[in-house]
Each structure stands twice: as C-alpha cells, then as structure tokens.
Amino acid sequence: MITLRLRAPLPCQVDASGLQPSLVRGMDIAALSRVKLRVNGKAHPLGEFFTLSGKPDSTTLRITGVTPALQGLGNEMREGLLLLEGNCGDAVGAGMRAGELRIMGDARHRLGAGMRGGLIRVSGSVGDFAGGPLPGAVSGMRGGTLLISGDAGARLADRLRRGLILVAGSTGPAPASQMIAGTVIILGAPGDSPGTGMRRGSLLLKAGAGALPPTFVQTGVHELSFITLLMRHLETLDPCHARALRGFRRVRRWVGDRGCSGQGEILFAGH
C-alpha cells in the first residue's frame, strides 16, 4: 500500500482525479513522487504536496489529510482500493466503475454521482444528491453500492437508475426523488416527501417515518422474499447494518408516485 500524506493546506482547488489506485501499480516511491499534479494551471510533481511512503505491492492507495480542495477523487475509478482519510469535497467517486473507495470522514455533495459500479463506504455524513446524476445527466447512479454510516443531505438517490444505497442515519428532504430503479435503504429518519416523482425502484424505511406524498397508495402488509436476498448480500458488505434489515421481514408497502404513473415502492419495516 502506498500512502500519500498532504504536507500543507493546498493553495487552491486541485484536480486530484488522477490519484487512482491504478496509479501505484508497478511504480516505486521515487517514480510516483514525480507524477504531475496540476495546480493553478501548472504541473507540479506530486512530491511537492505529498509525503509518500509504503510499498507499491498492490493497487491500494491511501491518502491522509484529505481536504475539500482535492477535487475529483476517485472519479471514473476502475480498480483497486482507495482510502481517503479526512473530509472530502464534491463529487467524490463520480462515474466510478469498479473497485472500492473508503472515506474515513465526511463527503460533500454529489458523492458517487453517476457511478456505474464498485463500492463506496463513508464513515461520516454526506451532502446533497449522493448517488444522483452528474450535472446535465439524465440518470443518477447506474450501478454499484453506496454505504453511508452517517447522515445524507437532500435528494439522496435522485434519479437513481440502478444500484444500492444504504444510509444508516437520517436524510435531508426528498430522498429517492425521481428515482428510476434500484434500491435505497434509510435506517434513520428520512426527510420530507420521500419518493417524490418516483418511477420505479424500492425505498426501504423504518417504521414511523414521516408522511409520504399524497400520491402514494398503500397495498397492505407483505412478506417479500427479495428482502432476505438483500439482507444476505448486505451481510457480506456491512454486517452491522445488515442486521437492521431483519425488521423488514414484514413490510407495509406503498406504491407511487402515482402522480407520474410511477410503480416505485416504499416499504416500511416493523409490521
């Protein structure tokens, strides 16, 4: 594993999208320290901003002292493990294809926007539009898994097309807004108007969550086998939070958003 430690606060926003796990494959510390990083429009060697240590024995890259000034971390990532220690900026993991990205800290808006595969774990909280679309895109996340141990901001999983998002904490307004498909689990309190404009997909909420939009209709209490599959899958990724899904064995099912002929579902646990 190679570790990059930020020497001092960065003078401006820096495009760090090149700091990928694939970068460390086959490169020694000396070669890595010469890799160019564009700062203020000029190319600077990586070693000018980071202290490098470790052995390049795998595609694992650890960056400590991460600040929001490091932009584009994990963008279009395709392999390996990227460990980020500190609070990240916007659009971390955007367009990610594969591999694992772990954030030990918080992340700002558009975490995992438009991601297609891979796994993102966040130990802290995230901002708005996590798992949503990149600006101008028709759909949000199209694959992969987002596990957030803290809270999420507004419009979590906006236009989600495919994939799984779990938030252990609460969320801001309108989670799963305009959701197209996929699965979202919120173990804390969801914000107002969950599922607004939802077309398809599943939103799993704990019992006692806030009021739904009036354009959702209730179909009663059901036992749905797919939740067991979901629980078993989550046990391989996050055993701690997977246990919370046991409460979803019997769910109260609401379908909507009928305001847009949607067939999405909101499943309330504990029935």
């Binding site: 694959g143 495919r162 699965t183 059901h222 036992e223 749905l224 086998s225 797919f226 979901l230």
Partner: peptide
Amino acid sequence: KKIGSKRYWRVPVMDGE
C-alpha cells in the same frame, strides 16, 4: 431487482410475489 451481481424478477401473483 439486481442484488450483487445477480438480477431477480419479482412477479406479482395472487399470494404475493
């Protein structure tokens, strides 16, 4: 419903799915 790498289908039937 895609769970992990596998896709499943939930077909509504008279006793549930």
